[in-house]
Write a protein that binds this DNA or RNA. Structure first.
Lengths: 201, 201
DNA sequence: CCTACCGATCGGTAGG
DNA sequence: CCTACCGATCGGTAGG
């Protein structure tokens, strides 16, 4: 989907990807509406009209950022979900994968833009994102079902899933990379909050 | 703070309050940056320059909306927190109060703007909000401490509190007034997710 | 990808 | 609270 130009070799830099990355950072920092084309162009040393050589509109840039966020978090969590470990270990690996994408330097701008700026997408792109999100949430629903089956949680209802997604996604608001807690620690603590140890064994 | 004009009687409508309400709704729907002064003025049947008779800037309108949101949720939850019931009943009453403000028609525009648009405040107003929020979160921390003391939860750490606040605040993203679950039902289910019944008695 | 530019719209103000 | 307006800035485009 991102490859309209064939054979982009490694030595010639991919300006389109540069724009997506800069847009993601700015959309995250200032929000979509408060970010101007001139901000984005300046961040990649272009003139203000030049981004439109790569994207047909500002909305199209947002779409690229949001889909990138959806894709990377989806891939990371899907890998954790199919790692073939115990329900509890699988669950914790999924928590870690989700939080890594959300809070880590590699993906946080995309993920945060996905979470907070999707409403500015046009109707068509919004439907695209909703479809992907439904698949993503189904993975989590399955993980909760497995935990319940294993007797590790009492409630695997959709509300329980939304409860968890909220707790996870809200970390964006308070997590600080230079803080006292690592992402892995937070993932472990979140797992403990949901899985009551007295249920084990 | 909102009363610069004295003795606003009931029969003469308070246009300032009208503007705050309209601004709240629009900031919630479209976001602060995407909302124009002309949107707000039009929503209360004014000309585009007139809101500046009541507010010195658009940022000042945002400040009024956000402080209104902070104040109402703070008041509602504080009342629940001091109702003198058992830790568990108090906790559930606090959950209900928070969700009522967040999801109910009376306060949701203010609360949602507080949650999502506060970053657009100037530095000064932002500090104001942070101070109020610290006090608000302290109430929740106390509630968790009480639950732990009563043996109803295993973890009353700050991360547990943030976990809860995230789950609560994320309801804005998925709750639908015409959906199958009432706010009271969601509050009860959230309480059950955190308070393991096997701990009781 | 740059130059040069357009029409539209923005937050805000003077003067009443 | 309206009228009339300002300077700045916006997303986007034509033509190269």
């Amino acid at each position: 989907m991102a490859a309209s130009r064939s054979k982009a070799s490694a030595e010639e830099p991919n300006r389109r990807a540069d724009i997506v990355r800069a847009a993601g950072r700015l959309f995250h920092e200032k929000g979509y509406s408060a970010t101007t084309i001139r901000d984005i162009a300046g961040a990649v040393d272009m003139q203000s009209g030049s981004p439109f050589y790569h994207f047909k509109s500002k909305h199209d840039m947002l779409r690229a950022v949001v889909l990138e966020g959806m894709d990377t978090i989806n891939t990371a969590v899907a890998r954790a979900a199919t790692s073939g470990k115990s329900p509890r270990a699988t669950f914790e690996a999924m928590l870690r994968a989700h939080l890594d994408q959300l809070l880590g330097s590699a993906g946080r701008d995309f993920a945060a833009t996905l979470l907070h700026e999707s409403r500015h997408l046009d109707r068509e792109a919004q439907a695209e994102v909703v479809a992907l999100k439904d698949g993503y949430e189904a993975m989590w629903q399955q993980a909760l079902n497995d935990l319940k089956q294993a007797g590790l949680i009492a409630d695997d209802s959709p509300v329980a899933r939304l409860f968890l997604m909220g707790a996870l996604n809200w970390t964006v608001q308070w997590y600080r990379p230079d803080g006292s807690r690592s992402v892995a620690q937070i993932a472990r603590q979140f797992a403990r909050l949901l899985i009551d140890d007295t249920h084990r064994g």
